[in-house]
């Protein structure tokens, strides 16, 4: 690498063209092949953020992909991912500026996982040290950062944030017990897909001694219902549950995906009055919150707010719960074309 390139990296860092880490400078000679792989012309409008009066053009998306360290070969995933992030249902500006410190959680599922060699076993929730996982996850956060701040006039108000705001990408096992992740959102099992949700950081769930699926689900449910969960009051978002193979071996013996979801919906509840006592529910509560004093309360407004992904390595009895950001009500799932 020449000193000129190092100078350009520093220039990007000093000029606000960064997520805080060094970037690949977006030279035209790198952006052009990325654009071609994405199948867009430079001035094509990929998405519109109406409330910010912003049109996001293809060359900006391609430059971001280059800067994040993505290869043009990742383009089928990046194309669907950019469209998902800029889908108005996702509310990218809200995700960027919220006090909730949310990230864009990316879930890749289907044949694309093996085809592009995503890591889906060791450290599948993050820190897998695989280029495609790291850079696709980084690309998503950089699109959020670059497009969600009104061209730089807005600031993030994230109170505490989490490391996923730099990169957060999960690839699901190509072979699953309950069917690919995206089938929970209406896509065919044989499809490849990228799914996004705005999320907080993952909570690890350890259970090494239960011999039943119910024991594992009770552990996961307990993780969903600690006092600090954001979901208790508005209940607008939901949870992603990531089940690793050793836990899945137990759970799948006794539960289908639908039965597991029903089990958690019915059992992961706590007394409303206790939530009031610790200040988790406003008095008087908003009508929208549907607070029923004296009743057991679920952190889910609808059972569909809970989804399952199968990932992680064998040899450890861990799973994880990822709370979604309360202000983004929608999961956006897009089919990946052109593999």
């Amino acid at each position: 690498m020449s000193h000129g390139v190092l100078d350009d990296i520093e220039k990007c860092m000093d000029s606000g063209w960064t997520d805080g880490l060094p970037v690949i400078p977006p030279y035209g000679s790198l952006v052009d092949p990325m654009l071609e792989a994405l199948g867009w012309q430079a001035s094509d409008v990929v998405g519109v953020i109406a409330e910010q009066s912003i049109k996001v053009r293809a060359e900006q998306v391609a430059a971001t992909a280059v800067m994040a360290g993505c290869k043009p070969g990742y383009a089928p995933v990046l194309r669907a991912l950019a469209q998902a992030i800029l889908d108005p249902l996702f509310n990218v500006s809200g995700v960027e500026v919220t006090t909730g410190g949310a990230s864009v959680l990316v879930i890749v599922s289907g044949p694309v996982v093996a085809a592009l060699d995503f890591e889906h076993e060791a450290n599948a929730m993050g820190g897998a040290n695989r280029r495609i996982n790291a850079t696709v996850g980084r690309f998503a956060q950089m699109v959020r950062l670059f497009c969600g701040r009104g061209g730089g006039v807005l600031e993030s108000h994230g109170t505490i944030g989490h490391p996923g705001r730099l990169s957060f990408c999960i690839a699901e096992h190509p072979e699953t017990a309950w069917g690919p992740y995206h089938t929970q959102f209406g896509l065919a099992a044989e499809a490849s897909a990228v799914t996004i949700m705005a999320s907080e950081g993952p909570n690890s769930c350890n259970n090494h001694y239960s011999s039943t699926g119910a024991g594992i689900l009770d552990t996961i449910g307990d993780c969903m219902m600690h006092y600090g969960q954001t979901a208790w009051y508005y209940r607008s978002s939901g949870f992603l549950v990531a089940i690793a193979p050793d836990h899945m071996d137990l759970v799948k013996r006794d539960f289908t995906r639908e039965a597991a979801r029903q089990y958690l919906y019915e059992n992961a509840r706590r007394q409303t009055d206790d939530l009031v006592k610790v200040g988790r529910i406003a008095i008087p509560p908003l009508e929208f919150a549907e607070v029923e004093f004296g009743a057991m309360r679920t952190p889910l407004k609808f059972i569909e707010q809970l989804s399952f992904v199968e990932c992680g390595a064998t040899g450890g009895r861990f799973s994880a719960v990822v709370p979604r950001w309360v202000g983004s009500r929608n999961v956006v799932c897009k089919q990946i074309e052109g593999l």
């Binding site: 350009d8 030279y27 952006v31 900006q60 670059f146």
Partner: peptide
């Protein structure tokens, strides 16, 4: 360099 940041 190609600017990655859209403006209002």
């Amino acid at each position: 360099l190609v600017n990655p940041i859209p403006r209002p």
